[in-house]
Amino acid sequence: MTTVTDRPPDSPASRQASRQPTWTADQALEQLYAAHWRSLVRLSVLLVRDQGVAEEVVQDAFVAVHGRWGRLRDPGRALAYLRQTVVNRSRSALRHRAVVERHAARRTPPPEEPGADQAALVSDRRAAVLDALRALPQRQREVLALRYYLDLSEAEISDTLGISRGAVKSHASRGAATLRTLLEEQL
């Protein structure tokens, strides 16, 4: 299995550090999409629970990053901006209860592999984790998703959420403690 590189198409990796990337906004968008679309939607699902809402949130974030490419000009910064936008928009989506309700009413596609009992167990476990996350205060949920799903450092989380490192640390420890209690059976 291979992955799409973050390397600008016309810049050898060895010279990448010393050269301005020459991606256009369209190229940047497509590279970021190829590499991060799925994981950002999954991140948003951890935050908002609903896949339809998550896809719309992340789609909007990609449109936003494209419009901002002239100022970002760097795949790393663009990814940071994407993450931040996804978290912020996921938060707004939750605030708009109407949106959430409308999508909750939408039918979800049938599971692809109905593997009887085993599948039911797995899907119960997944639902339990998502329910537990929803039960947490918003900041704790965001910190935990960035920390344990995207594996971001404290500094990166602090930048993404615009809060101090101390706050990241305290949200992380309190959130993790609550989550462990809620998910005792799963852990």
């Binding site: 968008l29 999409y33 999954r42 951890l46 449109v63 419009g67 599971p111 996350l133």
Partner: peptide, 27 residues
């Protein structure tokens, strides 16, 4: 690592639709 594994697993079945078309149209 337990939380990491749990989070990964919780969304492992989320397979988003391809929206590159829609994004490209909007951009």
């Amino acid at each position: 690592n337990d939380l990491h594994d749990l989070f990964e697993d919780a969304v492992a079945d989320v397979e988003p639709a391809d929206r590159l078309d829609a994004i490209r149209c909007r951009t």
